[in-house]
Amino acid sequence: MGLLRAMGSWAIAQLQTIGQMFIFLANALYFIFIPPFKFRLLLRQIRFFGNKSMLVILLTGSFTGMVLALQLFYILRKFGSEALLGPGIALSLIRELGPVLAALMVTGRAGSALTAEVGMMRITEQIDALTAMALNPMRYLIVPNIVAALIAFPLLVSIFDLIGIFGGYLVGVKVLGISSGTYFSLMEDYVEMEDIMIGLYKSLSFGLIVSWICCYKGFYTGYGAEGVSKSTTQAVVLCSILILIFDYFLGSVLFL
């Protein structure tokens, strides 16, 4: 009986948290469309998500493309289809690896920092100060982050894809000896607009997930430095799991 009660309380607590998370998101999405709009804060957060994640994206993108070239070349050679290396790399990156890996990297770099920043604002009463000044923290703190992520994620994913394709080119053409014309011309033949749109939808979804979860975890952080540290870890873990789960479901829906 005791175990049943404990399970019941746990389930109710989880449902309450999920409900609170969706109310938080609905509130944030509502204020996106309600003026006054905070363009300066938005630009600052686009820089935070985009510009400051650039080095991580360039490094991970290029090495992902390079390792993909090595592995795909090894597989394709078994079937005598080395010429398909270019489209193989491009399709893998654009449809799948670009959005997922870029989102995971931005979660680690910017998402964790965002949770910590919002969490610190909570425990140092800066969020209370906004409320006490009759200013809505959603509008000042959360909305700029969500909109910035929706703008920055597709751009970062595009850069990840491009630099990945270039990394694949370096290994495929310069190291493994495929002709440059084959690498790019077949890519043009096989990559369609639909593939690019799938990548775009995924990056937008991941942008929303990362900004939502990271802001929520910071906004409702626990007490003291320990509370912020716990929230940051939870935000990164939850974002990473949700990115992979949504990647599968989005992939299934968009593929069908």
């Binding site: 610190m120 009463e125 800066q126 209370d128 100060a129 006490a132």
Partner: peptide, 12 residues
Amino acid sequence: LGVLFQGGALFD
């Protein structure tokens, strides 16, 4: 209303 919070609550 004006509120002076314990730690100041200045925006970092």
